[in-house]
Design a protein around this nucleic acid. Structure first.
Lengths: 128, 128
DNA sequence: ATATAATATGACGTTAACGTCATGTTTGCA
DNA sequence: TGCAAACATGACGTTAACGTCATATTATAT
């Protein structure tokens, strides 16, 4: 299906209409083409874009940060943007990401230790 | 220094007084002991606790989630909490963490590819 | 042709995590 | 002892990322 209205779009992307309109309003999502009537029409690419946004949100980026990088995934960047600046942004995100990865790794191993500690405790007190 | 007031606490922990009071108000931080006067007094442990909270925030946990796990770091859990429940929480956080780690890893490699792509482009157009 | 469903737009509401006064009491130093 | 700096408490403000009506117009199934 390629050429859908907001109902199908939101169903396929797993977001609400409010979310789509909000993203359009802040320039994160291009407002779908409109016919003579007021309705917006979207494509498969819009679905993919919404999914990518969701993925980046899970990584912990704000919508504003996502707006900075999303074009890298969905336009021929060879044309539009100032290359050096984009590269700068990418390097910053890479550094941030590595920081987060380290913090997350640390947290994970803390969790592991605690889990093991609790399980040992439960095992030692299996007498209820 | 062990026994400080909020000024020193916030300076050492790198947070504002408002943050401390907010954390106290939501039960994330135990309200420091109060003398006959109304003042609160804190210890090194409070500093450590604030730092731990900050670390967990960076991992992407909400203050509410942090409240669920922070006790694991700062109390003798052998006494206070229902063991099985805590273990459940820990396992959920572990699963969440692994998800985030995967998403982050994916994002990181996407970033890498894009960076390389841009650098190749810049190299190929070194003619300004 | 008409009733029902889908869409557009605007406005106000909501939650988390604090920021920012305002006002009153307490402390510490010259 | 006086007075600026530190602390306590309350109330209102703020931002992000939407949720939730309300109302009007367009599309669709019978």
């Amino acid at each position: 299906m390629n050429r859908m209205r907001i109902g199908d779009l939101t169903e396929r992307a797993g977001v609400t209409q409010r979310t789509v309109r909000y993203y359009e309003s802040i320039g994160l999502l291009p407002s779908g083409e409109r016919e003579g009537n007021g309705h917006h029409y979207y494509t498969e690419e819009t679905v993919a874009r919404l999914q990518k946004i969701d993925q980046l949100k899970k990584v912990g980026l704000s919508l504003e940060e996502i707006r900075d990088v999303i074009e890298l995934y969905f336009t021929d960047t060879s044309e539009v943007l100032p290359k050096r600046k984009v590269l700068g942004i990418l390097y910053r995100h890479l550094a941030d990401t590595d920081q987060k990865l380290e913090a997350l790794g640390q947290f994970r191993s803390d969790l592991q230790s605690n889990i093991e500690r609790f399980e040992r405790w439960l095992e030692a007190n299996e007498r209820d």
